[in-house]
Design a protein around this nucleic acid. Structure first.
Length: 420
RNA sequence: GUGGGUAUAGCUCAGUGGCAGAGCGCCGGACUGUGGCUCCGGAAGUCGCGGGUUCGAACCCCGUUACCCACCCCA
């Protein structure tokens, strides 16, 4: 057999129901907040992410599924959604056409990384973006939406962390201050931190090596280096979050990996998703539109990993599972009658199953049990002769005869009435 | 890209040099038309792959691939 590609995975019955549930809940929530779905191509020009996500990021430098297509074009499987959504928004002038510049997207993303728990090469994100709204109240709305999402999925014990990373006006000074504060201590840090000090000093805050922590704890905080505009903006975001009653923690150590973030950044953290702890992350990216050659518009949004959400979601309650019907028959004469009944049940919007292999009634009952059928409808020679159907309640074992003409309506009442 | 672990039935796993195993699941039976519980029977294996050592290898050695976990990175 030919196996699946490394880092990809099949989502099978038994697990796919959790995915469907996560997607249904998120979709309903996003629509309620005024967001509209957009579906963009999985394949894009490599340039979109080189310029958007950032030339210096690991994603672009070593994780993209990029190649030259048969027309000589440099293309890539998308590693994230934000640049695609910005592109689509500009390309189709959605600013003019949409009721509100708020979009969401579900779909697979691709990064060539070493797979581990909660991290795959083909993974799935849900993505929410608001374009052209600079008001700090919208930052708070997006954070509120993210928090509401986690709650709606039933995930408990999650933590919301917020920070501001400043803007091109104030961040360079902060980065310089970091390097200056490190000074000679750089040599005492781990090899990764020494590299970060060169390439992207802010990311030193991500370090998990215990020995490095005393040095990192003594480093200056981004919040102390914000320019007036960024400081005012962040204060307003905090005021709105407080007003909404959202429990959050400000952490100066929250620095995000993508180049385009400005001002507000946030993450929601949870346990049980392997070495990873970020369920979702996002922030403001006010320079991205221009970076991509578009008009000067602001942006803010977040992306959540579906695999991680599903991992963190609680087991569905038993009563939430479906309870279908099962049609059993005995003897060739009853087969056609059973097929007709099966079809009638389905036409009446009831979930109904049948065993086609002509096996013993015992085997059919076993199948009904496996399918967790609420009721089994039995058609044998006796029933056929009487123009009736035997209806067996699988929970109690009780059984009674119902007229064939009335059985579909009867089943509708039974199934709907028995729903918790 | 780096490090560690694992690979045996559909699933979870036992088996440290001498006949390939268990539990669960699957199929059948214990009433000629009744599921779950119990009992009986059955089917099911390239012991990841390639090489080596040995009278003999699932087991020891070398190589290789995949998966898992962690680093890194990030959702």
């Amino acid at each position: 057999m030919i196996p699946a590609i490394r880092g990809t995975h099949d989502i099978l019955p038994g697990e796919v129901e959790r995915w469907q549930r996560a997607e249904d809940i998120s979709r309903r929530l996003f629509e309620r907040y005024g967001y509209a779905e957009v579906r963009t191509p999985i394949i894009e020009r490599e340039e979109l992410f080189a310029k958007g996500t950032g030339e210096t990021t690991d994603i672009v430098q070593k994780e993209m599924y990029a190649f030259t297509d048969k027309g000589g074009e440099r293309v890539t499987l998308r590693p994230e959604a934000t640049p695609s959504l910005v592109r689509a928004f500009v390309e189709h002038a959605l600013e003019q056409r949409m009721a509100a510049p708020k979009v969401y997207l579900f779909g697979p993303m691709f990064r060539y990384e070493r797979p581990q728990k909660g991290r795959y090469r083909q993974f799935h994100q849900l993505d929410v973006e608001v374009f052209g709204m600079a008001d700090p109240a919208i930052d708070a709305e997006v954070v509120d939406l993210a928090w509401a999402l986690v709650a709606a999925l039933g995930i408990v014990g999650a933590e919301l962390v917020v920070n501001s990373v400043g803007c091109p006006a104030c961040r360079p000074a902060f980065a310089a201050a970091l390097v200056a504060a490190l000074g000679a201590d750089v040599s005492r840090l781990c090899r990764d931190c020494q590299r970060r000090a060169q390439t992207n000093p802010l990311r030193i805050f991500d370090c998990k090596v215990p020995a490095d922590q005393p040095v990192i704890d003594a480093l200056p905080h981004s919040l102390d280096f914000l320019c007036d505009g960024c400081r005012t903006h962040f204060a307003a975001v905090e005021r709105h979050l407080g007003m909404y009653g959202i429990p959050y923690r400000v952490s100066h150590r929250l620095v995000r990996g993508l180049d385009y973030y400005t001002r507000t950044t946030f993450e929601i953290l949870a346990g049980g998703i392997g070495a990873q702890n970020a369920l979702l992350g996002g922030g403001r990216y006010d320079g991205l539109f221009r970076q991509l050659g578009g008009p000067d518009r602001t942006g803010i949004g977040f992306a959540a990993g579906l695999e991680r959400l599903v991992l963190a979601m609680p087991e569905p309650r038993r009563s939430e599972r479906r309870r279908p019907l099962f049609v059993a028959y005995m003897g060739e004469a009853a087969r056609d009658a059973a097929l007709a009944l099966l079809r009638d049940l389905r036409r009446a919007e009831l979930e109904a199953h049948m065993e086609y292999e002509g096996r013993s009634l015992k085997a059919q009952m076993k199948r009904a049990d496996r399918l967790r059928a609420a009721f089994t409808l039995i058609l044998g020679e006796e029933e056929l002769a009487a123009g009736e159907v035997s209806v067996k309640d699988m929970a109690t074992g009780g059984q009674r005869r119902v007229r064939r003409e009335a059985v579909v309506e009867e089943c509708r009442a039974l199934v709907n009435g028995g729903r918790e």
